[in-house]
Simulated assay, not measured.
Amino acid sequence: MTDLGCGRSWDDVYRVKPSRLTCEGCGWPMNARLSPLQVPHFAHQPGAPGDCQAGGESPDHLYLKWCLLTSAQEAGAEAADEVEGPGGAWRADVLASDPGGRWRFALEAQLSRITPSDI
């Protein structure tokens, strides 16, 4: 997204000190960075709380979730990220559904090895 979804460009936030960016999950200050593979991402500044949902996810995982979310929306689905199931029984990286409510499915951004029994 050319405006990062908030009316600001990457150049407005990359290597800008202080960044004045905050995490939507925990409110902690964030910095715009590039991963070793040059993937743009945001990272918590040191000292962030350990219970932030976004804090333990790699830049590649977050990027894949964004790709799933925007692709589902562009295909006409209603989609949201980090949707929790009834009673917290499960959490979908992205939950996509038909605007008419006829179907819904979870999209998972899986980058590490996983066994069929874990699935």
Rank of each mutant, 00 (worst) to 15 (best):
Q45W: 11
A109L: 08
E108W: 00
G47Q: 02
F105C: 11
D60C: 02
V94A: 10
E108A: 12
D93I: 11
H44L: 04
A77C: 15
P49M: 02
R91A: 01
A92H: 10
V94G: 10
I114C: 10
P99A: 05
G55D: 01
P116K: 03
A92E: 05
H41N: 03
Q45E: 13
Q38T: 06
R104V: 02
E84D: 04
E82V: 00
P49Y: 01
K65N: 02
C67N: 07
A72G: 07
A72R: 07
V94W: 06
S97P: 04
A54Q: 02
C67S: 14
E82S: 09
S97Q: 15
L64G: 06
R33Y: 09
W90S: 13
P46T: 12
G87V: 10
D51L: 03
P86M: 02
E78I: 13
A43S: 15
R102F: 08
H61Y: 09
A75I: 03
G50T: 08
V83G: 03
Y63N: 14
P36F: 07
L37W: 08
G50L: 08
E84A: 05
A80R: 15
Q53P: 11
R113W: 14
P46E: 05
A54Y: 00
Q38Y: 14
A106N: 07
Y63L: 15
T115I: 07
F105V: 12
A92F: 02
P40T: 06
A92C: 12
Q73D: 06
S58C: 10
